[in-house]
C-alpha cells in the first residue's frame, strides 16, 4: 500500500527530511518545537500551493513560469476591490482571485496549444505581459489597510496552543489549506480520468493523440489548474502579509520550480507526485529555517540552496545513467 502513495523519490526525500530534522534539532533544539514547525508551515503555504500547480503542469510535459504574475494580478484585483468597497466578507474576497487565475491560465493553454511553441517561451512572454500591464495600471502602488475580518481571518488557527511566554500559536488555516490542496491534487491525479490523462500526455504525447485524448482539454486543465491555485495562493499571500506589493511575488518562479523538481517532478514530463512536491517544499523550508535558527548569515542561504539543487540533480542524473547503461544503444 505504501508503494501506491509513495514512490522511491518520496521515500528518499522523507528519509532525508528526517535526518535533516534530527541534525537541526541537535544543533538547535528549538527547531523541533511545535511553535517553530507551525510557523514554518504557515510561512511556506504560498510556496507550497503554487508548487502543486507547477507539479501538474510539469507532469503533463509543460511548464509555467507566468504563475507569479497570475497570482499577483489576481491578488491585486482582489485588494483593489476589497479596500475600495470595504468588503466585509472574507469568503467573497476569496472568490475574487480564483476566476482571474483560471482565465489567465486558460489564455496560456490556448497559446501553448495553438502556437505549438515550447510553453516556457509562451509563459515567459505572458509573465511579461501580465506583470507589465499590472504595473502600468497599478503604477506599482501598494495596497494595505484591509477590512477587519480579513485581518482576523489570517490569524485563524485550526489548533491553538499557548506558548510559555503566553503567546498563542497553532496550526494556521493556510497550512491546512495547503495540505488539503495537496490531498485534492493527489486525488485528482491518481483517481480522476483527467489526472491520468495528464500523466499519459506527459509520458507520450503522440500516443495520447492516437488514443483519442483531447490534447487541448488536457492542456486547458493543467494551465487552468495552476491558474486556479495561483489565484488561491495570491489570496493566501495577501492575507499572510496583510498587504499587497505588486513586486513581491514575481521573481520567485525559479524557487517554485526548484521545489517541484527536488520533489521528484520531471522537467521532461510524466513523473512527479503531490507528496513529493510537499516534501520538496518542506525540505527547502527546513533548510532555510535551520539556517535562521543557527543564525547563519542570510547570504549563505542561497549558496546552500544552490548546492542542494545541484547535488540532487547530479544524483538523479547519475542514477538514470546507471539505468541507461544496462540498455545502451541496442
Amino acid at each position: 500500500m505504501l508503494g501506491r502513495i509513495a514512490g522511491r523519490t518520496e521515500v528518499y526525500l522523507a528519509g532525508v527530511l528526517i535526518v535533516l530534522s534530527v541534525v537541526l534539532f541537535i544543533l538547535n533544539p528549538k527547531f523541533l518545537t511545535a511553535e517553530n514547525l507551525f510557523d514554518v508551515l504557515r510561512n511556506n503555504s504560498f510556496l507550497g500551493i503554487v508548487a502543486l500547480g507547477e507539479l501538474v503542469v510539469l507532469v503533463s510535459g509543460g511548464i509555467d513560469v507566468s504563475f507569479t504574475a497570475i497570482a499577483t494580478v489576481a491578488q491585486y484585483v482582489m485588494g483593489v476591490i476589497i479596500t475600495k468597497y470595504m468588503v466585509e466578507s472574507v469568503f467573497f474576497a476569496f472568490l475574487i482571485p480564483i476566476p482571474i487565475g483560471i482565465a489567465l491560465g486558460a489564455f496560456n493553454a490556448f497559446l501553448v496549444n495553438r502556437t505549438r511553441v515550447h510553453p516556457v517561451i509562451i509563459t515567459i512572454s505572458n509573465l511579461n505581459v501580465f506583470y507589465g500591464l499590472l504595473m502600468v495600471v497599478s503604477k506599482g502602488r501598494w495596497i494595505y489597510g484591509f477590512p477587519g475580518p480579513f485581518r482576523d481571518f489570517a490569524r485563524l488557527k485550526v489548533l491553538t496552543l499557548i506558548s510559555e511566554k503566553g503567546v498563542d500559536y497553532g496550526l494556521s488555516i493556510f497550512t491546512v489549506a495547503w495540505f488539503f490542496i495537496a490531498f485534492a491534487t493527489w486525488v485528482v491525479l491518481r483517481y480522476l480520468p483527467i489526472g491520468r490523462k495528464v500523466y499519459a500526455l506527459g509520458g507520450n504525447s503522440e500516443a495520447a493523440r492516437r488514443a483519442g485524448f483531447d490534447i487541448f482539454r488536457i492542456q486547458l486543465f493543467v494551465y487552468c489548474y495552476i491558474g486556479f491555485l495561483s489565484g488561491i495562493a495570491g489570496f493566501v499571500h495577501a492575507a499572510l502579509n496583510q498587504m499587497i506589493q505588486p513586486n513581491a511575488i514575481v521573481g520567485r518562479e525559479l524557487d517554485v520550480l526548484a521545489a517541484a523538481i527536488l520533489g521528484g517532478a520531471s522537467v521532461f514530463g510524466g513523473a512527479g507526485s503531490p507528496l513529493g512536491v510537499v516534501l520538496g517544499v518542506l525540505f527547502i523550508a527546513f533548510i532555510k529555517n535551520g539556517l535562521i535558527l543557527m543564525k547563519a548569515s542570510a547570504y549563505w542561504h542561497q549558496v546552500i540552496m544552490g548546492l542542494i539543487i545541484v547535488l540532487a540533480a547530479t544524483l538523479s542524473a547519475y542514477q538514470q545513467s546507471l539505468e541507461r547503461k544496462r540498455r545502451r544503444w541496442v
Binding site: 520550480l257 526548484a258 523538481i261 546552500i304 544552490g306 548546492l307 542542494i308 539543487i309 545541484v310 540533480a313
Partner: peptide, 11 residues
C-alpha cells in the same frame, strides 16, 4: 544544473 548554479553563484 544552471538553475542550481544560478542560485549558488548568486549566493
Amino acid at each position: 544544473a544552471t538553475l542550481g548554479l544560478m542560485i549558488f553563484i548568486r549566493g
